[in-house]
């Protein structure tokens, strides 16, 4: 029985597919849905080589970048909440900073999630910080089942139902 679902999202094509999948499953199982947006910790070392400015000025930049990233996170989560509302699914959201794989695991443990839904790393232009989740590690350490939503080739039907989504299950159930 799936009662609580945790979906990781950041607005990319792969993540949107994960959102769809999570929405279908939540609707089918009448489960609680929580959307997690992880701001990659790599942002913190993006300008590591910069040395000309004072630490105060560098902090100003980080504050600006942080505000922008939270704006981006809020926008992505806002869209998802709207989509969920249209499907009649209630969703809670949170934004956290860290290594995506580690944060997803800790959030799933804290929330006692029954299923984690993640997206597939897609080829092509990404609008996000480029970093892949170590899926193998996630599967090994996950406290529940993990589902990785697959992005289909252009032209194929991507509107998933709970059953269709389950048939594309790539994750391995654990524990």
């Amino acid at each position: 029985m799936i009662r609580t679902i945790l979906v990781a999202t950041h607005g990319s094509k792969g993540a949107v597919e994960a959102e769809r999948c999570a929405l279908d499953l939540a609707a089918t199982h009448d489960a609680e849905l929580h959307a997690l947006y992880v701001i990659h910790k790599g942002w913190g070392s993006l300008v590591g080589i910069e040395w000309l400015h004072s630490s105060e000025k560098r902090m100003d930049f980080y504050r600006y970048a942080e505000a922008e990233l939270y704006k981006m996170a809020d926008a992505a989560l806002g869209k998802f909440v709207q989509r969920a509302a249209a499907c009649g699914v209630k969703v809670t959201t949170s934004v956290r900073v860290g290594d995506p794989g580690e944060v997803i695991l800790s959030e799933a443990r804290e929330r006692g999630s029954d299923l984690i839904v993640i997206g597939d790393a897609c080829k092509g232009r990404s609008e996000e910080y480029k970093a892949k989740i170590n899926v193998g590690k996630l599967l090994r350490s996950a406290p529940c089942s993990v589902l990785q939503a697959k992005v289909l080739a252009r032209g194929k039907d991507t509107a998933l139902t709970g059953e269709a989504c389950a048939s594309r299950l790539q994750g391995i159930a654990q524990g």
Partner: peptide, 9 residues
Amino acid sequence: VSAAVAAAP
């Protein structure tokens, strides 16, 4: 990178 940091905001 230093100039990018200065110009971004």
